[in-house]
Design a protein around this nucleic acid. Structure first.
Lengths: 304, 304
DNA sequence: CCATCGCCATGCATTCCTGCATGGATTGGC
DNA sequence: GCCAATCCATGCAGGAATGCATGGCGATGG
């Protein structure tokens, strides 16, 4: 329709225009870098590149600071207009996000539901107050196709092709035991010592046992006095001194009555975000998805 | 001064806004890519990234084309304003460049002065008609410090620290002989055969001889019957059949009465642009500098 | 007059982005 | 109903942009 329009005149790098605008307003590259959350060399190079792109000298490099040339001054008006329109874009965008409403269900393991999701929910309040969040705490692999949840947080990439998945980070877990249980057990200094210990098991225990054996920890089914599909039950069993529990370090380290058994032996496992293809096009689901994708990595790396 | 201003609202990637604008106006990613001279995957990723950055769904992916969502429609107004301001920036910039005037002197070797500079001058007419260009054809290393020229085109990086230099490309040269001289000389199939030949030499001939010997061509001072500092004289000597001449391939191949001696043995040498630091801040010099930096690489690679 | 501070320029390792080639999906024509 | 054309999504390799650390320079205050 508008294909008659000529876009050649907007082909220059708009980010360089932004660098020029902020630098001119702030008066120096360093100040502009601080304002934009970038570094001074980056902004300096962007401004230089814009000068080469336009074939103009915008700043006079004079000693300490930069001074706008006549050409730069005349461009400032137009660049300011771009900046004001950009503010409009930003405000309108956040307004649209604020206006989004509806219901979004996220499923995660019990541990993550109680540990991570509250922080996510708090952020969601600020970004999109109209969205109500439902947290489905479950360790079972919920079937997204049945609409039991819109987004799932999992530890593996799903194989279904009509699901989209994004790896958002990595978490770390290790063995924990209650202080009194560890006393009864005696000193553990080596993975081989764990042959004396007992573990709280998971419902699908063979997979868990195989993982332990791969790490050089010889275990037999007899060492699993209790199996449970609930991570909460799992953790409570460990706290009661029934056996060793395996939980994310962020949770286990925060429990005062629990201790790592082998502090240096940890298991790293990936965190995946999963949703339907179609659901990603739903505004409210997309907002929650993007929030999770942004917030989870830092929550996992900075347990805070 | 304006440090009170809050730039957080313009921190989003402006190029992604441009991608969104053109895509929405053109109606498809592919059309937008054609209009902007980019590729469809790039624009698709930029739009997706903008959606994640703003936390919005801008397009509904429906079958063939894309359809603006409500949020996208509402953003279009502000993004259009950015685009119009961008057109203003572009127009003002070209206007400023057009208005630039003054005198700029460029020094280059005789060969390049007559071979490359006319094409440069033609382009300069379009970009900045107010600038008058002086071409100083000289093979001597002109001293830029004495203001004999504003910009120099050289074959080596200068060592003076107060000069700025930019490598703009690479050129290729080889030996040429006139047809009748090559007949007198007999067949040349190997670099070692050149021991029978005579060469036109340069004023600083030791450097040239060393370069030949490094390439496995044994030469002695007795093989240089004529020395000259002028490349033009050098070439005329070769054309008259005095000996073998060494010139850029772009020049030598265009001469009908000359032939390459060893077509596959070529010398590659770099092309440097040199100017004063201070002169780079002069608008008119900067315009010519940027034009040279942009045009020379393609002139050297596509001799046309 | 000298020391200190802030600012800009440059070399280097890394990350991110871009372009290319391909696969999957849908629309329109015959 | 099938074919062809068009468009969007994704894996991959090369190149560009970014950040970090450093050096040089001018301005300011003692």
């Amino acid at each position: 329709m508008h294909s008659c329009m000529d876009w050649r005149s907007v082909t220059f790098d708009w980010n360089r225009a932004r660098a020029f605008l902020v630098t001119a307003e702030e008066g120096s590259l360093s100040a502009a870098a601080r304002a934009l959350g970038m570094t001074q060399p980056t902004l300096g190079r962007q401004v230089t590149a814009l000068e080469e792109e336009l074939g103009l000298v915008l700043f006079e490099r004079v000693g300490r600071g930069l001074v706008l040339t006549q050409a730069g001054t005349q461009l400032m008006g137009h660049v300011r207009a771009m900046g004001e329109a950009a503010v409009g874009v930003s405000l309108a965008a956040s307004g649209q996000a604020q206006a989004a409403s509806g219901h979004v269900a996220v499923t995660a393991s019990e541990v993550y539901s109680s540990w991570l999701m509250p922080r996510i929910a708090r952020r969601l309040r600020d970004v999109a107050p109209g969205i109500t969040l439902e947290v489905v705490a479950s360790n079972e692999i919920r079937d997204l196709r049945r609409r039991e949840a819109d987004i799932a947080i999992r530890n593996a990439r799903p194989e279904e092709p009509d699901l989209i998945a994004k790896r958002v980070g990595e978490d770390e877990g290790t063995f924990y035991g209650s202080i009194d249980y560890l006393e009864r057990l005696g000193p553990i200094t080596d993975p081989a010592d764990l042959a004396r210990a007992e573990f709280i098991g998971f419902a699908d225990n063979t997979q868990f046992m195989e993982a332990l054996q791969k790490r050089g920890i010889p275990v037999t089914p007899a060492q699993f006095p209790v199996l449970t599909s609930s991570h909460t039950v799992h953790w409570e069993m460990a706290r009661m001194g029934v056996g060793l529990g395996t939980v994310p370090c962020g949770l286990g380290d925060a429990a005062p009555e629990m201790r790592r058994v082998l502090p240096d032996v940890t298991f790293r496992f990936p965190i995946w975000l999963v949703a339907h293809r179609e659901l990603r096009t739903s505004p409210r689901v997309r907002i929650v998805w993007d929030l999770l994708a942004e917030a989870l990595p830092e929550l996992l790396s900075h347990p805070e």
